[in-house]
Simulated assay, not measured.
Amino acid sequence: MEQEHLPKHIYEQLAFFRYRIRKFIRFSEEAARSKGLTPQSHQLMLSIMGFPERNYATPKELAERLQITPHACVELIQRCEEQGMVQRCPNRQDRRSILISLTEKGMGILEELSEIHVDELKRAGLLVFDKE
């Protein structure tokens, strides 16, 4: 018995979508490097500011967002802290954890990177953003 395959256009759409994602990721990686950051540092900073309803996160939350191990996340936070991009603050509600937020320096670089990312997404016709 012959197995039925998905229609060719489905493969084409999936392949094109994957291509566009990879192209955007490459753009993002190069943009981060142009600002002296690793792509992972940029992702960490974006995850902090992009966390819903607040501008800080715990290392555990960040590890989940970045899909890395908690240990790897702590190492990444340490490297970003050494560069002056993020800071650790005590968590007053749970003394067992800390909160990670951006420094002014980190926020400035993230703002620059985010503006060029928005422009790239608009140029590619992938998303439309309101700045408000």
Rank of each mutant, 00 (worst) to 15 (best):
E2C: 06
E4G: 05
L6C: 04
K8I: 13
H9E: 14
Q13H: 13
L14I: 12
A15M: 11
Y19C: 05
Y19A: 06
R22C: 05
R22K: 13
R22I: 05
F24W: 09
F24C: 06
I25H: 10
R26S: 15
F27R: 05
E29Y: 07
S34L: 05
G36V: 04
Q40M: 12
H42L: 15
H42G: 07
Q43W: 06
Q43V: 02
L44Y: 01
L44S: 01
M45G: 04
L46V: 07
I48G: 00
M49L: 12
P52S: 11
P52K: 14
P59K: 00
K60V: 05
E61A: 03
E61S: 04
R65T: 08
R65L: 12
Q67C: 09
Q67K: 15
I68F: 01
T69H: 13
T69W: 06
P70E: 07
H71S: 10
A72C: 00
C73A: 13
I77K: 01
Q78V: 03
R79I: 01
C80F: 01
E81Q: 15
E82F: 07
G84D: 04
V86F: 02
P90D: 08
N91T: 03
R92M: 10
Q93E: 12
D94S: 07
S97Q: 14
L99K: 15
S101A: 10
L102Y: 01
L102W: 01
L102R: 00
K105N: 08
I109R: 08
L110Y: 02
E111N: 11
L113P: 07
L113Q: 06
E115I: 09
I116F: 03
I116L: 07
I116Q: 08
G125F: 08
G125I: 08
L126P: 07
V128L: 10
V128W: 10
K131H: 13
E132H: 13
